[in-house]
Simulated scan of single mutants.
Amino acid sequence: MRYQGKIYRPWMEADSVLIQTTLGCSNNQCTFCTMFDDKRFKVRELEDIFTDIASARQRHAKVESIFLIDGNVMAMRTEKLLRIVDKIRDTFPELQHLALYSCFNDFRRKSVADLTALRTAGLTTAYSGLESGDPVVLENIKKGMTREHAIEGMARAKEAGIQVLASFIFGLGGKTRSREHAENTTSLLNIMQPDAIAPMALAVQPGSELAAQIQRGEFILPTPLQLLEEEKYLLENMGDFPCYYWGDHGNNIASMKGEWPAVRDPFLAHINEHIAYNPMAKKNVIETYAW
Rank of each mutant, 00 (worst) to 15 (best):
D134E: 11
D134M: 09
P135K: 09
P135W: 05
V136I: 15
V137K: 03
V137W: 02
V137S: 10
V137D: 02
E139D: 14
N140M: 12
I141E: 04
I141H: 02
K142T: 08
T146D: 08
R147P: 02
E148L: 15
A150T: 15
A150F: 02
A150G: 09
A150Y: 00
E152K: 15
E152I: 14
G153D: 06
G153F: 00
G153T: 05
M154D: 02
R156F: 01
R156I: 02
R156K: 15
R156V: 01
A157S: 00
A157Y: 00
K158A: 06
A160Q: 04
G161D: 01
G161C: 03
I162V: 07
I162M: 00
I162P: 00
Q163S: 08
Q163R: 05
V164M: 00
V164G: 00
V164L: 01
A166G: 11
S167V: 08
S167W: 03
I169E: 01
F170R: 10
F170Q: 03
G171D: 07
L172I: 15
G173Q: 06
G173D: 06
G174F: 12
G174A: 09
K175A: 13
K175E: 07
K175D: 06
K175H: 14
R177D: 13
S178F: 06
S178Q: 08
R179Q: 10
H181D: 14
H181N: 13
A182D: 06
A182Q: 10
N184W: 01
T186L: 09
S187N: 15
S187A: 15
L188Q: 08
L188Y: 09
L188H: 08
L189F: 11
L189C: 07
N190M: 12
N190F: 08
N190A: 13
I191Q: 15
I191A: 14
I191F: 02
M192C: 15
Q193S: 07
P194W: 04
P194Q: 01
I197C: 07
M200S: 14
A201R: 02
L202F: 02
V204A: 06
V204L: 03
Q205A: 12
P206D: 07
P206R: 04
G207L: 13
G207W: 04
G207K: 06
S208E: 05
S208K: 10
E209S: 11
E209R: 10
E209D: 09
E209K: 15
I214R: 02
I214E: 09
Q215R: 14
Q215E: 14
R216E: 10
R216Y: 00
G217M: 06
E218M: 07
E218R: 12
F219H: 10
I220D: 07
I220L: 10
P222E: 01
P222T: 08
P222S: 02
T223G: 06
T223E: 01
P224M: 00
L225D: 03
L227I: 14
L228K: 11
L228H: 10
E229F: 04
E230P: 05
K232P: 00
Y233G: 06
Y233C: 09
L234V: 13
L234C: 13
L234E: 07
L235C: 15
L235W: 10
L235N: 04
E236Y: 09
E236A: 13
E236L: 15
E236D: 12
N237F: 08
N237P: 04
M238L: 15
D240G: 13
